[in-house]
Design a protein around this nucleic acid. Structure first.
Length: 427
RNA sequence: GGAGGGGUCGCAUAGUGGCCGAGUGCGGGCGCCUGCUAAGCGCUUAUCCCGAGCUAAUCGGGAUCGAGGGUUCGAAUCCCUCCCCCUCCGCCA
């Protein structure tokens, strides 16, 4: 979130941010925030002055020996007490409203984020390999059913639309990808592996910025305060919630594999075919906490870490630089990574690598000290997929398919496949 | 799920209505002293918010004793609700 002080003192920057993000009601929201903030501070001054009076009187009353004098002082404070009781709920209500409004203001785009009105203005920053296909190439959902490694029908039987079952070598292929990605990030890229809760409390969703904006996209338990994570970014952000990290702690590089759950209400009817967009999917997520001045470099490094997965799998990829109009709520700067799938004949987003600046750290109240006794500062946080499994599966299946309908297993996955080098050939 | 115990300043503890934002010990920091990496002595030891100030040093005020409500002129202390931890029983991947 943004600090009230920042909104107050850099109102023009915030207004520009909202305009660049194509937020229609941005100005009205800022006006309301400024108005409430002014009222809040006026009321706060009054309440605090009264409290100071109470505190001072409290000491006198405590010290008063003469019962008559004592009673006189107590009676005198009753009106002050009443006034405080009157004002406090008003102040509380204003702070509540204000807090709610500020929570809905998105992060300020980084200066490096290009301006653009919508995703059409995103530009390809880097591309490795050209689009290609062949007449005989099939989409993964055809391959998957023919090889009996993806079962859509049974997924629907169990859970409804947007669910599927991976079977045999299909399930194993995904597990191999997960293991390969994790080990690459741990052993070669220096991340520390985390096994995380897939359900978190509501508060945690606010801290990482999923709430209130994306309430419609989240699943939660009807009876208890359990919310299903839509990405490991949520628990990872909160790993150090409320902490002040000691000098020498940063940077922290974490990697976690989790299932992710999304309602996908926004994309009803889109991408319904195949495994491209399900309510449940797996993802390996990278996450960093670092000093503010290092986050730009850390972002580039994280992008490379994601691309290294694509390279190791010999996938054709491109990097999309997200423009202001398409930037996510929490992000100041984002690269998307897409890989080419030769069966569907499209680029698939397998990763989104973002620098959130101090936006999430402020929400989750994560701070660090540069030196012992130093002033606490907010670290920057970064997150990136490394990678999302279903789309990586699609690309691998479609790009490694042979004309006879079998699928070669990429070399780097062989150690995890228990001797299966080709799916469908020796079944 | 049942019964009991407990949550106070980095750690350990003291504290049953005002002299407690909070004592003591340990740990950490600064300084003094001591003719040797010890002992001793003194000081210090959180975070956030509002205001003033050169968007400074700093100063004034407010808040925070698991969280939220309540009683009261006044709550770490009393009452209620919730959360978490520990012990035992039950159940269980």
């Amino acid at each position: 979130m943004l600090s009230l002080q920042f909104i107050r003192e850099h109102t023009d920057v915030v207004r520009k941010s909202l305009a660049d993000r194509q937020t229609a009601s941005g100005d009205a929201a800022i006006d309301e925030i400024l108005r409430l903030d002014e009222r809040r501070r006026a009321l706060l001054a009054e309440v605090e002055a009264l409290r100071a009076e109470q505190n001072a009187a409290g000491k006198q009353i405590g010290a008063a020996k003469d019962p008559v004098e004592r009673q006189r002082l107590i009676d005198a404070m009753k009106s002050v007490s009443t006034r405080v009781d009157d004002l406090t709920p008003i102040l509380g209500a204003i702070e509540g409203t204000l807090d709610g409004l500020v929570m809905e203001i998105p992060n300020i785009p980084d200066a490096a984020t290009p301006y653009g009105k919508s995703e059409d203005a995103n530009r390809v920053a880097k591309q490795h390999g050209e689009e290609y296909t062949d007449a005989w190439r099939k989409p993964h959902y055809v391959l998957g059913e023919a090889l009996d490694i993806i079962d859509f029908e049974r997924g629907v039987r169990l859970s409804g639309s947007r669910f599927y079952v991976l079977k045999g070598a299909g399930a194993r292929l995904q597990r191999a990808l997960i293991a390969f990605m994790l080990e690459l990030h741990i052993d070669k890229h220096g991340y520390r592996e985390m096994y995380l809760p897939a359900m978190v409390k509501e508060e945690t969703m606010w801290h990482s910025g999923q709430l209130p904006k994306f309430r419609d996209n989240l699943y939660h338990d009807a009876e208890e305060d359990f919310w299903f994570v839509p990405t490991a970014e949520v628990p990872l952000t909160n790993m150090h919630g409320g902490e002040i990290l000691e000098p020498g702690t940063l940077p922290l590089h974490y990697v976690a594999y989790t299932p992710c759950f999304r309602r996908e209400k926004m994309s009803a009817g889109r991408d319904v075919r195949g495994i491209k967009r399900g309510h449940q999917f797996d993802k390996v997520e990278m996450y960093k906490f670092c000093e503010p001045e290092r986050s730009a470099d850390e972002l580039e490094a994280m992008l490379e870490d994601a691309l290294n997965v694509c390279r190791a799998l010999d996938l054709r990829y491109r990097v999309i630089e997200i423009c202001t109009g398409d930037l996510g709520f929490n992000a100041a700067r984002t690269y998307d990574v897409e890989v080419w799938s030769s069966g569907l004949g499209e680029w698939l987003e397998v990763s989104s690598v973002s620098n959130c600046g101090e936006f999430q750290a402020r929400r989750a109240n994560i701070r660090f000290r540069r030196e012992p006794g130093g002033k606490p500062e907010f670290p920057h946080t970064l997150n990136g997929s490394g990678l999302a499994l279903p789309r990586t599966m699609i690309a691998v299946m479609e790009n490694y398919q042979r004309e006879d309908g079998s699928i070669d297993v990429p070399d780097v996955l062989l150690p995890f496949m228990g001797g299966i080098a080709r799916i469908g050939a020796d079944r």
